[in-house]
Design a protein around this nucleic acid. Sequence first.
RNA 1: UCCUCCGUAGCUCAAUGGUAGAGCGCCCGGCUGUUAACCGGUAGGUUGCAGGUUCGAGUCCUGCCGGAGGAGCCA
Length: 429
Amino acid sequence: MLTTIGNISDHVGESVRLGAWLYNKRSSGKIQFLQLRDGTGFIQGVLVKSKVSPDIWEAASDLTQESSLYAEGTVRADERAPSGYELDITSLEVIQKAEEYPISLKEHGVEFLMDHRHLWIRSPRQRAVLRIRAEITRAIQDWLDKENFTLVDPPVLTPSSCEGTTNLFHTKYFDEDAYLTQSGQLYMEAAAMALGRVYSFGPTFRAEKSKTRRHLIEFWMIEPEMAFVDHEENLRIQENMLSHVVQHVLKECGPELKTLGRDTAPLENVKAPFPRITYDEAVELLNREGMEFQWGEDFGAPHETKIAETFDRPVFITHYPTDIKAFYMKPDPSRPEVVLCADLIAPEGYGEIIGGSQRIDDPALLEERFIQHRLDRKDYEWYMDLRKYGTVPHSGFGLGLERTVAWIAGLDHVRETIPFPRMLNRLYP
RNA sequence: UCCUCCGUAGCUCAAUGGUAGAGCGCCCGGCUGUUAACCGGUAGGUUGCAGGUUCGAGUCCUGCCGGAGGAGCCA
């Protein structure tokens, strides 16, 4: 029966058996300190030469970084240990003496680490990030389940573009052309008409030559879609969900945030309601701050950062010009030149983490948009059906998981937020 | 696709146009409380590739390949 390091505090004074890898080792001739990790945490194992058999002493001396082993010993609370506990090792069973491990405890370059991503994820920092990612996912799903959303899985292989703008990954579907999904939204609209409140959670693909700290080729989105929900309620759902997520991570991931050196003070502020400014107000704000910006343009990364700096929590930018937004967004009835949409900009320069809108429910207007956007009508026949057979006001949004993780964890690049990032020029490992 | 920067030992980096080096890691030795431990020693190189300038190129020039940061596009 194995004990895990994560539960070690329940076993003080007891003899336990761990399955572990050797993370690092220090020795002083007659005493050895083995830094052990088992995925749940790290603990220092102590061997004193005069107190263990020569076999065990020799086995420990011979261990290399990342060697796998079973260790038995007595758990002891110790103030000198970073985790607060140590293991006085009484028995050691080496599973494998590892070959020379490429990743040392010193600094490495990005390319080298990315080439060894399959090993890099063993490091304390990467473990912490992946733990936080999992807790963010859990918090989102807990909140949506509690609010009576139903999980619905849209297809990954699609016959055509969902939005028709960006580059898609092309593949063959027997004799037909097919594309990897860049958004499940249109399918989620169909699902919302069947189940009321739904959400999807899955990978999406963008064949764009984007090369920044905020972009991945393959990334995960959470896309809720809600029948009978208007623009205003859409925003309330978003801010309540995100507040829950941030507070959940603060509560559950203290050690991980500490490992990452994340300043948690800015996260404490992230509670609903979030500030809202209209696109018009954002343009004024930018001009007031001395940035050149014309009404009708889309914001770039520097603009988003400037706007975000003005607030102490995420900020909604609403009512963008109709011409620069997707075809399915509903125009503001009092101002048709803008749409009922909102992008949520994260603080600290992490950029847009949510894009959402109320959708067009009027079949005649949707028909118009197909023509304006030069979309092939027959590809969207099923989507039009949603407006022909009992159309209702409905809204939805998409949250980018990796950008959200990067922000909450305080990382400087989204490539560390996913186990095996797919980026421009990187498909390995 | 565009702009800027960078490719030297397994890794991180030095080296006025003039004998390719250090730290870490590996291996050997030392050390009873180490915290990226420390101390001593050994081994380790087609300086990304191809051309050019020069008496002489890691260093200067041209092209290519690879990478990083940013822009655009987006989440």
